[in-house]
């Protein structure tokens, strides 16, 4: 299963590409499948492609959930 990790668009590039930030880590992705994207928008990515745009509030809730999962994972491993 692919976890839906929200990424913030930080720069739009030519040829339907963009730079996104995933919790501070930058990555270049294709945004060909999303229309009307702007810097500051949040997207869900899969293998280098933005699949959907989500609103920032939803992105924050998802990030919080992923942090909770990550903490549970560390708890299980320790």
């Amino acid at each position: 299963m692919c976890l839906a990790i929200p990424a913030e668009v930080t720069k739009l590039l030519p040829d339907e590409m963009a730079i996104v930030s995933i919790d501070g880590v930058s990555k270049e992705i294709s945004v060909a499948l999303i229309e009307n994207l702007a810097v500051g928008d949040y997207v869900i990515i899969h293998v280098g492609y933005a699949l959907t745009k989500i609103d920032p509030e939803e992105a924050m809730r998802t990030l919080e959930l992923l942090r909770e999962l990550s903490a549970e994972g560390q708890g299980a491993a320790s």
Binding site: M1, A4, T52, L66, G75
Partner: peptide, 22 residues
Amino acid sequence: RLFAGKPAASLLPVLPRLFSLC
């Protein structure tokens, strides 16, 4: 571990948020 102890109904909106596919 994350779901344990939580009301089942409260988790329904959580799953679509967690999975980017399917």
